[in-house]
């Protein structure tokens, strides 16, 4: 809901429309290299490139229209210095998800090394720390959540995860137990 309440910065919108338009035109330009024609005897309507061509053309037109409208709005009412500065900050904000997504990749990497429960518990604790939830109650809630997820997905639904390298260090019985349940 929070994103709905935030007013869109016009300069940021223009930049985003520009990026979308550039990507869509690049995809359209790649069409001849990324698709091949079928036999000549079949009509153009059956060709493998027909549907991507139609979809990408509409995409390019849509993005060109939004880019034009955003540009016209900026030309009619020049952005203030504050607006440009806010847009710059907002554009950097686009990359905020990358930080979290990097943690997510780390979580996947850890899964094969520490097992589902431990990697999930560490991932949740790390995320909660990064988003500012650092009190004891959140640490406990994060651990409880990791345990609950393990119970649902490993014990309940039996979701398979690769055997963790860490469990190889355990005695045989304990390794089997940990591999099966955690």
């Amino acid at each position: 809901m929070s994103n709905v309440a935030t007013p869109t910065n016009r300069v940021e919108s223009f930049a985003l429309n520009g990026v979308f338009a550039a990507i869509s035109f690049a995809l359209l330009a790649a069409l001849p290299f990324a698709t091949r024609s079928g036999p000549d005897k079949s009509g153009w309507w059956t060709q493998p490139w027909t549907m991507p061509l139609i979809a990408l053309t509409v995409l390019c037109i849509g993005n060109a229209v939004t880019l034009f409208l955003a540009g016209r709005d900026l030309m009619a009412n020049r952005p203030t210095g504050d607006e440009v500065a806010a847009a710059r900050a907002a554009i950097f904000g686009w990359f905020r998800p990358i930080e979290f997504f990097a943690y997510f990749l780390g979580y996947i990497w850890l899964l094969g090394r520490a097992g589902y429960f431990l990697s999930t518990a560490l991932f949740i604790q790390f995320l909660l720390f990064r988003v500012g939830l650092r009190q004891r109650k959140w640490i406990v809630a994060g651990l409880a959540a990791a345990l609950a997820l393990t119970a649902i997905f490993r014990w309940g639904l039996g979701i398979w995860v690769p055997t963790a390298d860490l469990y190889g260090l355990f005695p045989d019985a304990m390794r089997k137990f940990a591999s099966k349940w955690f």
Partner: peptide, 28 residues
């Protein structure tokens, strides 16, 4: 306009892969 662009992007994504009719690759 935005919805039309988003929809056509989805339609484009649906074309990615091997085209069953001619067994040729599209945007792979």
């Amino acid at each position: 306009v935005e919805a039309a662009a988003a929809l056509s992007f989805g339609l484009f994504l649906a074309t990615v892969g091997v085209d069953r009719a001619f067994n040729t690759q599209r945007f792979t």
